[in-house]
Write a protein that binds this DNA or RNA. Structure first.
Lengths: 207, 207
DNA sequence: TAGATTGTTAATCGATTAACAATC
DNA sequence: TAGATTGTTAATCGATTAACAATC
């Protein structure tokens, strides 16, 4: 009888987390929903509602303990798992993600890279050697990869997703602009850059 | 008395557009909301509702003309404007975006690159020379840049946003993980990679 | 005509906002 | 105590889903 948490709430938690990290580095130990809301342009009611979904973290009349709340959110989001990523498709975007420093502060690490291009296989990106897609199963197993990141062209994305799942990844982060079919027990998040850019175009075309 | 269109609807239009491009390349000239829905995992009712927001595009008993609908959506999204982008921050991510081919098929083109690092200024990425941030105003004006893309560290993002707006860009696409303050008449879209990755972590931690 | 499919109205569902008692 | 702020319930708002008349 677990209550379902809305995706909107889940998507705001990383914003709270990041802001709490920042606030903590400023040596502030207590923060109110009002102050947190001001920093993020989110109403304090919304923040309290989101947090209350997971329990009672604050103190009435006082606010929230920054350090404690940060850790609570980290735990809710599962960041303590220190997930291990494999990137498939070491083109410009895949290469950029392999070098993306912000992952580390959230507890993610890139531990494997794959490509099918012979010119790319064997090269190193950010200290990680690029392997052939054909060796995916063996390496994903050996390096205990949790998450597969898909940065191949759309035409190849479904095949790569199938291989990643067969190799045992537990979640997929897809940058290819196409709808993937995956088993319902495998969480899938699509990162579709053309949506945001198109939305920007739409808003710029108004009035 | 213009009716406001929901962001959810606007965010689905690029998906329809992309699928229609694909369907058109398959030489199919008519498509039903049912078929479009199957390809995208969206209910046909939702699609008809979305499209009806902008007028009557379909023919009862028949479906939608693929080519016509594709063009209608392109116009609604403002893709015919052929927006010109400037990328500020030519690190791994900025460089990857400068090379991102999918932009072209949506009618966007990258026409300027900026960085503050002397080692990067003067180099070429995808045939475009990297300029100093200090020359931003002049170059943005000369090259008629519409959209500023921010791929600098979070600590520098607000300053860059201010400069882009002062230089005359009409919209901002922000990849820095921070809340930017911009005038209300400047559309801003945030592309926050840590949200999707954190959401994936959350779902992988359930059950 | 019969079957298919849109466009639109009504019903439902879910998320946000408002209000306020509890309490530090 | 008085002021501040949470957690929760109720009210509102908005988006999705269902139903179906219109019509090709």
């Amino acid at each position: 009888m677990k209550k379902t948490i809305s995706q909107a709430t889940i998507d705001r938690l990383p914003l709270y987390f990041r802001t709490l990290q920042l606030v903590e580095s400023e040596k502030t130990s207590i923060i109110s929903s009002d102050e947190l809301g001001k920093r993020l342009d989110i109403t304090p009611e919304q923040i309290r509602k989101d947090l209350a979904t997971f329990g009672q973290f604050g103190r009435k009349g006082i606010g929230y303990d920054v350090h404690e709340l940060k850790n609570k959110i980290s735990n809710i989001l599962g960041l303590h798992n220190r997930w291990r990523l494999a990137i498939v498709g070491v083109g410009h975007l895949g290469g950029a993600l392999a070098n993306y420093v912000n992952f580390a502060s959230l507890g993610f690490s890139v531990v494997a890279l794959f490509d099918k291009d012979k010119k790319i296989i064997g090269t190193e990106v950010n200290g990680i050697k690029v392997n052939a897609v054909s060796s995916m199963k063996k390496i994903i197993d050996k390096r205990a990869v949790d998450i597969g990141v898909i940065t191949v062209p759309a035409t190849e994305a479904q095949e790569v997703a199938d291989k990643l799942i067969a190799a045992g990844v537990k979640g997929i982060w897809n940058f290819a602009p196409i709808k993937l079919s995956v088993p319902s027990e495998i969480p899938l998040v699509n990162e579709d850059l053309s949506i945001g850019l198109s939305a920007l175009s739409y808003h710029m075309s108004q009035d």
